[in-house]
């Protein structure tokens, strides 16, 4: 004779947390109690509906604003924070003075490009199992897919002359729209990433700029509608060579 099944146990049955022996007893109980069986089936259906409705969120590209928020160092203690804030205000004033009458938003946006690219590099390049969403074996598909999402034909530069091969790429969600990240690796598994996003107000062509972000060298530039940033931990001269190669190839592609 089965001991009466308690309400809590019906829920535990639905959630798969009953011990195996009791589980079998609950199954016999349900076979003999159709009203309970119907409730249990309805509850299990709710779990399936919830997963069906909300699991797709797991596969959405992560908004960069959240990636950035997750990496921002905790606010430091008051004195340092005040000093940092003052420095920011000073920099803002100098930037404002320097930019009077010109396009003063430009350097800020470009600095943002380098910073976002470096964060995306730091977040995704250590991944050993899923460093990329689409691997290089499907390079044509990858480029087509990223191009479609970013909204313009993209190309992944070839760095084989510099010893780096394409691992693949992924899509991120930036403030100005989708961002493509291409990842490359050399024979000793060092990784560099090329970050491509549609330029916001900073159309035009700029020279290479260099920044140190998150312990990486980042070379970044604007070309036409796009901002590019190449990030990696391989030292400035080697990064410069890769950036030159990327720039030359992308230039050739657009002509």
């Amino acid at each position: 004779m089965i001991e009466d099944v308690r309400e809590d146990e019906l829920h535990a049955y639905v959630d798969g947390v009953l011990p195996a022996a009791r589980r079998l007893e609950v199954e016999s109980w349900l076979a003999a109690h159709p009203a309970d069986a119907a409730r249990v089936e309805a509850w299990a259906a709710q779990n399936r509906l919830l997963h069906g409705a909300f699991d797709p969120v797991l596969n959405e590209p992560l908004p960069l604003a959240l990636v950035r928020a997750a990496r921002r160092p905790a606010p430091v203690s008051s004195l340092r924070a005040v000093a940092a804030a003052l420095a920011l205000i000073a920099a803002g004033l100098i930037g404002y003075a320097a930019g009077l009458g010109t396009h003063d938003a430009l350097p800020m946006q470009q600095a943002r490009l380098a910073r976002d690219a470096a964060i995306a590099h730091v977040v995704f390049s250590p991944e050993t199992r899923h460093p990329v969403e689409v691997d290089a074996a499907h390079a044509a598909h990858l480029v087509a897919w990223l191009s479609k999402r970013v909204g313009t034909p993209l190309a992944a530069p070839d760095f084989s002359a510099q010893g780096f091969h394409l691992l693949g790429g992924r899509l991120l969600a930036g403030e100005t729209g989708p961002v493509a990240q291409f990842m490359y690796q050399d024979s000793i598994e060092r990784r560099v990433t090329l970050y491509v996003r549609r330029a916001a107000a900073d159309k035009g062509v700029t020279a290479f700029r260099h920044a140190r972000e998150e312990g990486l060298d980042v070379f970044y530039w604007i070309d036409g509608d796009f901002g590019y940033a190449l990030s990696g931990p391989i030292g400035r001269p080697a990064m410069q060579q890769l950036a030159d190669a990327a720039y030359r190839q992308l230039e050739a592609d657009t002509q």
């Binding site: 699991d55 596969n59 992560l62 908004p63 604003a65 959240l66 928020a69 921002r72």
Partner: peptide, 30 residues
């Protein structure tokens, strides 16, 4: 992040509000 976003989305059923909630959570966590 992916699971925090999923829970927030289901909780609020509004993607903007959900991501704001995730962002606040991250800031508080840090």
């Amino acid at each position: 992040l992916p699971r925090l976003r999923r829970y927030a989305r289901a909780l609020t059923r509004d993607s903007g509000r959900a991501d704001d909630l995730v962002q606040d959570t991250l800031e508080r966590a840090l």
